[in-house]
């Protein structure tokens, strides 16, 4: 498994965004109640990303690891997932689209209907929670996925997919290392300045 930090951070941010959006919607998280306990294993092929979507009474949970039984397993590219999410007829999309599905599709279709009915504005909560994510590259990727979900014209979708694919292949540990190193250098300078200020103030206090 590659470094799970970014993966976990991104899922945590998405989860927070989804729950914020649900809470702001008219019916709130109550709509999930009939489906509580369902777990969907999602395997995205491009960009490569695995996660589990848990529906619970008080919201959704996204995890990178889960070892219990799942309701259904869904495999496809990000554009296939987004097609399902925005589809007017989920059952037809599942039959005709490129997603492969194993397990029980009924809860998935019901969940899709709930999402579609909620008419949630995902963007605001998503963007605000992405501010919390450490690596901004991943935030960019997610922003890309997001805006493309709405505008999906097929040409654009392909371009974005390529962009995401390239981005996702940048090794996160390296980016993180460089960011971290820059932050540290900056922090050291600030600490040095602060330290000498504290010392100056101390000297002043002792004199007076």
């Amino acid at each position: 498994m590659p470094d799970p930090t970014l993966h976990t951070a991104a899922l945590a941010a998405l989860e927070a965004a989804a729950n914020r959006a649900l809470a702001l919607s008219e019916q709130g998280t109550a709509v999930l109640e009939p489906l509580a306990g369902s777990v969907f294993a999602c395997h995205c092929t491009t960009p490569e990303l695995d996660f589990y979507l848990h529906l619970e009474t008080d919201g959704v949970r996204l995890t990178g690891v889960y070892e219990g039984a799942v309701t259904a397993r869904i495999t496809g590219s990000a554009s296939d997932f987004s097609e399902l999410a925005t589809s007017e007829d989920a059952a037809a999309t599942l039959i005709n689209g490129n997603l492969t599905l194993e397990g029980n599709s009924a809860p998935l279709i019901e969940f899709q209907h709930i999402l579609a009915d909620l008419n949630i504005d995902w963007e605001a909560p998503l963007v605000s929670s992405l501010g919390d994510v450490a690596g901004h590259q991943i935030a960019e990727i997610l922003r890309g996925v997001f805006s493309w979900g709405r505008q999906a014209s097929s040409g654009l979708a392909r371009q974005v997919e390529e962009f995401i694919h390239e981005e996702a292949r940048l090794s996160p540990p390296r980016l993180e290392v460089e960011d971290f190193y820059r932050d540290i250098a900056e922090l050291v300078m600030r600490v040095d300045r602060l330290q000498s200020r504290v010392e100056r103030i101390n000297r002043k206090l002792q004199k007076s």
């Binding site: 799970p4 930090t5 976990t8 995890t63 450490a134």
Partner: peptide, 19 residues
Amino acid sequence: SGGIHRIWKRFTIELSGVR
């Protein structure tokens, strides 16, 4: 940790398999 310990702990909980 710049708050990142929360992420480390979150992953720990995922891997715990606690039910």
